[in-house]
Amino acid sequence: MNAQEENVLSVEDLRVAFRCEAGRAEVLHGLSYRLPKGKVLAVVGESGCGKTVHALSLLKLLPPGGEITCGRIMYAGKDVLKLPAEALRRLRGAKISMIFQDPMTSLNPIRTVGKQLTETILAHTSCSKLRAQALAVRLLKKVGIENARLRMKQYPFQFSGGQRQRIMIAMALCLRPDVLVADEPTTALDVTIQAQILHLIKSLQKQSGMSVVFITHNLALVAGVADDVLVLYGGYCVEKASVRDLFANPLHPYTRGLLQSLVSLKEKTERLPAIEGYPPAPGEEQKGCPFAPRCPHAWEKCRTQLPPLFESGAHEARCWLVENK
């Protein structure tokens, strides 16, 4: 990521906390990144690492109890977090839109797909209902749904999982947003449909120069779609690099462990090099490096002091080992 590139979105020191019995638990501890125009940034992490919380914060969609305690999210020179409600409404869906993980529950089951698609268009533009419908049909065709005109009148349950996810994508893209936030868009789908969805997102992204924040736990997908990668662990960004750097030379022991524990299709291995232990629960109090309890290289310093993000060229990693290099 160099400075000349135009950044569409930049996140600075984003901190999110949830209310709990013991007061407040911080689940995202200061996340910063820049998203250049036309690039795909992958955010990788396990469940509970804060990746979905981060995605929801981008559009101020955190559920009750969640609170952004600190930070800025800059889009088009303005801080999204400080926008008044009306401006935020106009931003959501039109400029920054989102695809959620579960296509089964993110569509309204009692309204037709066509209604839901045109509703989005009509809410943000002043075009006529007929034109909105024509646009919706075009979009459905574009995402590969046959008999689009007829299927506009159908309800979500009449579509398969992959088709529903494609409808979600059509809905997210209908206003040609600058930024698409895709939160595990293919996790619930089969590999063949996953390939179709990725193909679709990539081709649409190439056509319109849209930027994508692609949230996933699947490193193989990251290798396939991303330009830059950000690895989250226990609410901290532990590594940030271009996709090639990350796969060729992972600096953080967690990233290395993740890459090693990928099961290979090509060769038969006798044992998988697994990362021992379990990821920390969200909001768990921790001293020092969040990965220290599972890290094979951890020493005293790791358990007591949280390492900062060390830079090594364009590659950043939150590990004391990198400092010593």
């Binding site: 996953q194 390939a195 179709q196 990725l198 990539k202 193989a220 396939g224 991303a226 796969f247």
Partner: peptide, 18 residues
Amino acid sequence: LDAVPSPDPSARKDFEPA
């Protein structure tokens, strides 16, 4: 098997829809 993404950024394939 073709649809399985490969964990290698240099062997990136253009996912071809069935």
